[in-house]
Design a protein around this nucleic acid. Structure first.
Length: 661
RNA sequence: GGCGAAGUAGCUCAGUUGGUCAGAGCAGGCGGCUCAUAUCCGCCGUGUCGGGGGUUCAAAUCCCUCCUUCGCCA
């Protein structure tokens, strides 16, 4: 065992589940890891950056079966979704591990064997209720109406032999470790959460699954009738990828300096399961950094809600660097942040286009016109008192960035860098080279040189976040390649005479997406089920308007109406929601790639069979919510009278997805 | 029900270990410049730092309590 070494940095992302499609959460975590890796390389620190995919488990087995493939074929295909994405986001992972690789499987087996030999694993009897959907056991008390408490799905009483890891015996040691090492889980609130979790007695961890139930896993070396529980398998990737048991020199150099970047959803597995596993394996313990989630319109982004922002689409639309910049600037590591195209465009336009891009552009254009298109000589300075101030700020930046990044305050490091960009813009205004050039070209040149030099500092410090753009801009201002390490950034390093070439502004401004359909004509007031309590409008309601149901007495602005995204939808399928005589679960085509599920309270008036093929009108941008345990992603419009609800429909067939206005 | 987090300027949010911490960006108003992507620069905020109580010479920052919102667990 070797001690941690500040000269080595080993960073990991979770291995992503192959069945998932990459979304902004994966992209964020991996880009953050990449940014940290790039920064550490620039700090002169030996860096290793690992990501990969988790390929075992029941869901993979099932998905493969449904597709008529072997699990391995399925995995081979699915893993590419991740592996191929990272280069397009300029992610520079040093390795990409798959848990089906022999280099991983043999380490898992060796670790299991060692623990078995030492009595850290024992055979026991498991009795409980198994939910295949979530691959978990529940006790009788945990069941909800005899069903899986997480999905409401079927559970099966199972009594079987299994193997258990003696996790409970490490509880005290784990608590002590967490208390003695305040930095072992970041942010600190997450450490508290784990300590809270540990207030209750820890159970031993069942680490096997009988092959009769699940074959897609790594066989236990000491009992081939069982495969390894996916978490026990998956977590070991962090070690197997760097040579545990096979290249111990390398392993011992990297491992004590590991930082696991994870989402807060897998905090317990890492800080409890994994950490105690490492204790049992007598290996050093990791630092765990749990980041937050991207919220979209203030709800958690997730596949099932269907509100995934595809990172590829943002990247394709606005560029990889702009996306990386936004992700790093907008989120405080550890906290949630809100993702919206509007916020994205604001960052792009204000920080990148207006401040950074415009600064480069104005300097280059000016130099082209007045300085022969080359970097002017440093000279004697601008003749103003601002030179020293600018230089001091620039020289302080690399150290500041290093401190902030070392403390995971990436967004502050980015902000500090943009602050230098703003300072340079101010410097240009203060020294007015475009005016001074008429009377004293040398001084004007010196001011331009200093501005370019300040910009060079900023671009080098921003390079880990936006590598491609920063490299291009450094070239454009005659500064050549980025410096090898930030400590090599020295004031005066920009040589005179370099060509300044910038064909177009480096960061285009983008128009905010406008509210569409602005000129649509006045629309009929949409009747609402009106579950709300009577509002204050009651007082304003009398007399004037006939009491047409739901008609607002005062009227709403057109913009308010336009917020409601009404669409024609075709019902593909309808079925009753069990436990309710009123609710129907519909699959509807709203003109999107996938059908949507909507739960509608029209079951008393419509039989499921009557609805299939019918067209209806739905509110397409309603926040998704669960109704009777079923996700409802939209609302079917209907008007109700004593005879019950009548759904609204177009009088002739209209393509699904057509907007209603 | 238990645990945790959040509640700071119109908006989005920063504010390590209590003492230039009452801030940034955006929006808004006014002014300046014109090299630049209608960009840039300057000036303008008396905000009960969710409410209340407490500790302290000193609290947004610690303690208690309440309210609201959101997570996790059961």
């Amino acid at each position: 065992m070797s001690a941690s070494n500040p000269g080595v940095f080993y960073i990991t992302t979770p291995i992503y589940y192959v069945n998932d499609r990459p979304h902004i959460g994966h992209a964020y975590c991996t880009v953050l890891a990449d940014v940290l890796a790039r920064f550490h390389r620039r700090f002169g620190v030996e860096t290793w950056f690992l990501t990969g995919v988790d390929e075992h488990g029941q869901k993979v087995e099932e998905a493969a079966r449904k597709r008529g493939m072997t699990p391995q074929q399925h995995c081979d295909e699915m893993q590419a979704h991740f592996r191929d994405l990272w280069p397009t986001l300029d992610v520079t992972n040093d390795d990409f591990i798959r848990t089906t690789e022999p280099r991983h499987e043999r380490v898992v087996q060796e670790a299991l064997q060692r623990l078995w030999d030492r009595g850290e694993i024992y055979r026991g009897e498991y009795e409980g209720f198994y939910s295949p959907r979530v691959e978990k056991f529940f006790t009788e008390e945990e069941l909800v109406d005899g069903k899986c408490p997480e999905t409401g799905g079927e559970v099966f009483r199972i009594k079987e032999g299994n193997y258990f890891f003696r996790m409970s015996k490490y509880q005290d040691r784990l608590v002590r470790h967490l208390k003695d090492h305040p930095d072992c889980i970041r942010p600190e609130s997450r450490r508290n959460e784990v300590l809270g979790f540990l207030a209750k007695p820890l159970q031993d961890l069942c680490i096997s699954r009988p092959k009769s139930r699940l074959s897609w896993g790594i066989p236990l070396p000491f009992d081939p009738e069982y495969v390894t529980y996916v978490w026990f398998d998956a977590l070991l990737n962090y070690c197997s990828a760097i040579g545990l048991y096979h290249d111990m020199d390398r392993f011992n150099r990297l491992w004590p300096n590991v930082t696991h970047l994870i989402g807060k959803d897998i905090l317990t597995t890492h800080s409890v399961y994994w950490t105690t596993m490492l204790m049992a394996l007598e290996l050093p313990l990791p630092r765990i950094v749990a980041h937050g989630w991207w919220l979209i319109d203030r709800t958690k982004m997730s596949k099932s809600l269907g509100n995934v922002v595809n990172p590829l689409s943002m990247k394709d639309k606005y560029g990889t660097d702009a996306l990386r910049y936004f992700l790093m600037r907008e989120m405080v590591v550890g906290l949630d942040a809100d993702f919206s195209e509007e916020a994205f465009l604001k960052r792009n336009n204000f920080d990148l286009a207006n401040d950074l891009g415009n600064l480069a552009n104005r300097l280059v254009k000016f130099a082209e016109r007045s300085m022969g298109g080359v970097v002017p000589p440093r000279g004697e300075g601008s003749g103003t008192p601002h030179d020293e101030d600018l230089r001091a700020m620039a020289e302080a930046l690399p150290g500041k960035v290093r401190d902030l990044v070392g403390d995971l305050r990436v967004e502050q490091a980015v902000e500090a860098t943009i602050a230098l960009v703003r300072r340079v813009n101010r410097y240009v205004a203060e020294t007015e080279p475009f005016k001074v050039v008429r009377t004293d070209p040398a001084r004007a040149g010196a001011a331009v040189w200093a501005a370019l030099e300040g910009l060079r500092f900023a671009l080098n410090c921003l390079w880990p976040v936006m590598p491609a753009k920063c490299e291009a801009l450094l070239q454009a201002i005659g500064a050549g390649a980025p410096v090898a390490t930030l400590s090599a950034l020295e004031w005066g390093g920009l040589p005179a005479g370099g060509r300044l070439v910038l064909d177009a502004p480096p960061f285009p401004r983008f128009e905010m997406p406008e509210e569409e359909a602005a000129e649509a004509k006045a629309a009929a007031p949409a009747a609402k089920p009106a579950p709300e309590k009577p509002v204050a409008a009651k007082a304003a309601a009398p007399a004037s308007a006939p009491a047409t149901a739901g008609r607002p007495a005062t009227g709403i602005a057109f913009d308010d109406f336009a917020k409601v995204d009404l669409r024609v939808a075709t019902v593909l399928q309808a079925e009753a929601v069990e436990g309710s005589d009123k609710l129907l679960r519909l699959q509807v085509d709203v003109g999107e790639a996938e059908p949507r599920q909507i739960v509608a309270g029209i079951g008393k008036a419509y039989a499921p069979a009557d609805l299939a093929g019918r067209q209806v009108v739905v509110v397409a941008n309603l926040q998704p919510r669960k109704v009777f345990g079923n996700l409802s992603n939209g609302m079917v419009l209907a008007a109700s009278d004593d005879a019950g609800p009548a759904v609204l429909a177009p009088v002739r067939p209209i393509p699904p997805g057509t907007r209603v206005s």
